[in-house]
């Protein structure tokens, strides 16, 4: 019997006590595998696992399952994202089995942005189960080796179970309780929403540590480098659940437009340095949105290279 729940690289890194560094990759709006593989090259060797997003912002793209399989084929470790918006429990369990069969060992269980945000707002939303129950379902399939109907699974999917946490959504006081519920449901690791409001996140982590949640689960802090002040303004206005302090926008605007990307990266690097020391934070999840080509440089400057190898 393995000492690991899934044996994924991410699980081994976290269990060994290393500061984890994960990345993210959005699949293409099409079947452009060549472009996807090009993006993989920026991530390979620079992160421990790569989140493959699932119709993010409710825009239809290549499936996260196919994207995850392509990651695996190319020698990267996928973190297969699954939302509750597009699949009922049958399709979810089928895709979990399929993902495992294709080499996937990490999953991130999410509710999913509402379809009205995306490019098919006419779609029916499913929500047969919610993200809390998805966590419990993946854990059940792994630990009990059973489907939801209690039938046995012939070769169960052994996934390292991830969940999201947005400390910046409301009501704030409830967020830590929701995190605790996700851990109780079976989350092995958490990747937070992009953090920009450091003061609020420090407070959130203090509550998390006070409740001892960091000892039950690995918490990876979400970092998104801003490309410019325009991106920061857009996210503040249009992306639900984002908390972008005016000081950050001011900081980006304070430099020449050509220098704003560098300023955004500097802020991200400062954040990563603080997260390395922050109690309860086990790693960073870098979401360089359509900016994968800057990941090698960010990883290098953040002093997280080379990535540790754990057997």
């Amino acid at each position: 019997m393995s000492e690991f729940k899934s044996g994924s690289n991410l699980e081994k890194i976290l269990k060994a006590g290393h500061f984890a560094f994960t990345g993210e990759c959005g699949p293409p709006k099409g079947a452009n595998v060549a472009h996807l593989k090009e993006k993989f090259q920026y991530l390979k060797g620079n992160v421990d696992a790569v989140n493959m997003t699932d119709n993010q912002t409710a825009v239809v793209r290549m499936s996260s399952l196919a994207g995850s399989a392509l990651l695996f084929q190319e020698g990267l470790e996928p973190n297969f994202q699954m939302v509750c918006r597009d699949r009922n429990r049958l399709a979810m369990m089928a895709d979990i089995l399929g993902a495992y069969a294709l080499g996937v060992r990490n999953m991130l269980c999410l509710s999913g942005d509402h379809q009205t945000f995306g490019n098919h707002p006419q779609a029916k939303n499913v929500h047969c189960i919610d993200s809390m129950q998805l966590i419990a379902m993946v854990k059940k399939m792994r630990d009990e080796e059973k489907f939801l109907n209690e039938e046995d699974i012939d070769v169960a999917p052994k996934m390292f179970v991830g969940a999201a946490c947005n400390p910046f959504a409301d009501p704030y006081e409830y967020r830590v309780h929701r995190l605790a519920s996700k851990i109780d449901a079976g989350a092995d690791f958490i990747q937070t929403q992009c953090i920009f409001n450091m003061e609020k996140f420090r407070d959130f982590m203090k509550m998390t540590v006070d409740m001892g949640l960091h000892e039950k689960c690995y918490i990876l802090a979400g970092v998104t480098p801003m490309k410019n002040a325009g991106m920061a303004n857009f996210m503040k206005k249009f992306v639900p659940g984002m908390d972008i302090p005016d000081e950050l926008i001011k900081r980006l605007k304070s430099v020449d437009k050509k220098e704003q990307a560098e300023e955004g990266i500097k802020f991200a690097l400062e954040q990563i340095e603080e997260f390395k020391e922050m109690e309860g934070v086990a790693g960073v999840h870098l979401m360089a949105i359509e900016w994968e080509q800057r990941v090698p440089e960010i990883a290098e400057r953040a002093n997280v290279l080379p990535r540790p190898q754990v057997d």
């Binding site: 918006r85 509710s111 942005d113 919610d130 809390m132 999201a164 409301d170 639900p240």
Partner: peptide, 18 residues
């Protein structure tokens, strides 16, 4: 909007739905 059974999603803001 998502028929959630375990608390508000990450899009809840100032009492309003995403």
């Amino acid at each position: 909007a998502k028929s959630l059974l375990h608390g508000p999603c990450g899009g809840s803001s100032n009492g309003a739905c995403e």
